[in-house]
Nucleic acid binder design. Sequence first.
DNA 1: ATGCCTCAGCTCCTGAGA
Length: 255
Amino acid sequence: MKLATWNVNSLNVRLPQVLDWLAANPVDVLALQELKLTDDKFPFQDFAAAGYLAESFGQKTYNGVALLSRAPLQAVVRNIPGFEDEMARVISATVNGVRVIGAYFPNGQEPGSDKFAYKMRWLAALREWVRGELVQHPRLVLMGDYNITFDDLDVWDPVGLKETIHCTTEERTHLQALIALGLHDSVRLFPQPERNYSWWDYRNMAFRRKQGLRIDHILISDALKAVATACAVDPTPRKNERPSDHAPVVLELQL
DNA sequence: ATGCCTCAGCTCCTGAGA
């Protein structure tokens, strides 16, 4: 079973690239973030023609997440139950006995801002919800755009970006609290290339200069760690014309 | 440098992203 996550930064603009990528990388499940469209505009037919069922949780202009799957998506849940949120950020479903959570974590903008405070509240709510989900679903994947780096290895300029957004101690403490629930950073389970990032700024030719951050992650439970055989970022779509600023991350399980 | 690029929208500028 192969699973992937990709922040597409507008599914309307990126649909042809997503279809091309799926044709070349026929994963079983793909979690999408930043759809930037409403469910009535979601291209269900295009994905069906490519062999994928889909569950969408969109909204106008911002945010929006979806799960694509070759097998049926069961027990679909939208957002974090019990956490009031106007933004469409989370969609979950069970596929072939694996609980899959696709999430678009808040950006946070700047430490000390209202948006940063919202990010902290959201992270706390996510953690308490996932704690219970892990009890019910030992085979669990939590993947998406986390908007948080684990450590300096995930940052192209750890000195210049010290304690800036995505790199603060407060955000990283929340990320480690997710790990403490019994989750594992799939990418780090396997050897990786140097400067292994998942996002590059559109400005300054950041991709060409390898100036990026690893902020898109696939966290897996103990039961899935035992059967994980590969996990890596696929930077090739970032070389497309009009690319997303994020690249997909792909996990392979031997189930 | 409150800058650089990209996207959506009450679209020819602004807000947000990261």
